[in-house]
Amino acid sequence: MKRLLLAFALWLPALACAGTLQPLTAADVPALLQPPAHGARIVALWSLDCAYCEPNLEALARLQRANPHGVELVTVTTDSIALRAAIEARLRSMKMDGYPARAYAEASPERLNFLLDPDWGGETPRVLVIRADGSRRGLSGALTPAQLHKLLP
């Protein structure tokens, strides 16, 4: 019973975190853009109103699953976190709810765009690749297999 309880207690926070949408404010941006300890962090920007975003997210998830130790994947929707229910539903339907997920929580979304990537005009999907060596790259549009391959550390 004790072991079962321990397992259950350990599993509960995991259940609570996976798919729990977190807000992204201007103050959170520096931490999100901090280089990872190793490999690469992929920040996948998407929006509810972007039909190209779904296949792009799914392709990034496949890439991450194939490289679980080298690639950290975070999804960020440019839609307001006030749309939590719709965003979480879409993340679930895309089977993306297992990844850390953020949603804009800033009154001026374009300002957040600018802080995340000054060379980004707000088009979606947008992928930011942040590598352990501190280098950073932004790519717009659904990525081709060749572009996806180049994301690998």
Binding site: A16, G19, A82, L83, E88, A89, S108
Partner: peptide
Amino acid sequence: LLCLLPLVASAHDGMRMEMPKGP
């Protein structure tokens, strides 16, 4: 703990499509 579980799970239920409510 078992009582808490539905609370955690319910955060994912009752979804309906809404309009972006940004500014």
